[in-house]
C-alpha cells in the first residue's frame, strides 16, 4: 500500500513538473503596422518602435531553452495585388529580463530568417520584429496585409 502511494506521489511530482513545462503560451501584443504609405516611397518600421513593430510575449517555464522560428511573408496582399515586404537580417530583438526594454533590448540584431535559441526569463520573453515595405510607384491604393507566424518550441535543455 505504501509503495503504491509512493509511486503515485512520485508520479504526481513528475506530472506537476511536466504540466509546468507545458504552460508555454504566446501572447500577441502588437501587429506589425506600417500605417499610411505613399506609392513609390519605401517605409521601414524599426523593431524599436513601440506601437508599430510587431510584439510577441512568450510565457512558460523560467530558464527553459526555446527554439524560436518565424514564418515570414515576402509580400503583402490586397485583392490580388501585392507589395514587397522585406525583413532585414537584423530585424528581430528580444528581452527576457524582468523589465523588457524595446528601445534597448537585451538581445538585439537577430536574424528572423533562421531559428533562434534563447531562454525564458522569470517574466517570460518579449520578442519584437521590424520590417520594410517597398511599394511600387504605381502601387494600387488600399489596405494590404500579410501573415507572420511565430513558433516556439522547448528544446528540452
Amino acid at each position: 500500500m505504501r509503495a503504491g502511494l509512493y509511486i503515485v506521489f512520485v508520479f504526481l511530482i513528475i506530472i506537476s513538473g511536466h504540466a509546468m513545462s507545458r504552460a508555454q503560451s504566446i501572447t500577441i501584443n502588437n501587429d506589425l503596422t506600417f500605417g499610411d504609405m505613399f506609392p513609390g516611397v519605401p517605409k521601414e518600421v524599426p523593431k524599436y518602435t513601440a506601437g508599430s513593430a510587431a510584439e510577441f510575449h512568450v510565457s512558460g517555464t523560467a530558464g527553459s531553452e526555446l527554439s524560436i522560428e518565424f514564418t515570414l511573408p515576402t509580400y503583402m496582399h490586397m485583392n490580388g495585388f501585392n507589395m514587397q515586404l522585406v525583413f532585414p537580417e537584423d530585424a528581430c530583438a528580444m528581452d527576457s529580463s524582468a523589465t523588457p526594454d524595446q528601445s534597448s533590448p537585451g538581445y538585439d540584431d537577430i536574424d528572423p530568417w533562421h531559428p533562434i535559441t534563447y531562454r525564458l526569463g522569470f517574466n517570460g520573453l518579449t520578442i519584437w520584429l521590424g520590417g520594410m515595405v517597398i511599394p511600387k510607384i504605381v502601387q494600387i491604393p488600399g489596405d494590404y496585409t500579410a501573415t507572420i507566424v511565430l513558433t516556439v518550441t522547448y528544446t528540452g535543455n
Binding site: 504566446i26 500577441i28 510587431a54 490586397m78 520590417g131 496585409t145 501573415t147 507572420i148 507566424v149 518550441t153
Partner: peptide, 12 residues
C-alpha cells in the same frame, strides 16, 4: 506553440 500576427499597410 504558435502565434500569428498581421503585417498591415494602407497604400494611398
Amino acid at each position: 506553440e504558435s502565434g500569428i500576427i498581421q503585417a498591415t499597410a494602407t497604400v494611398l
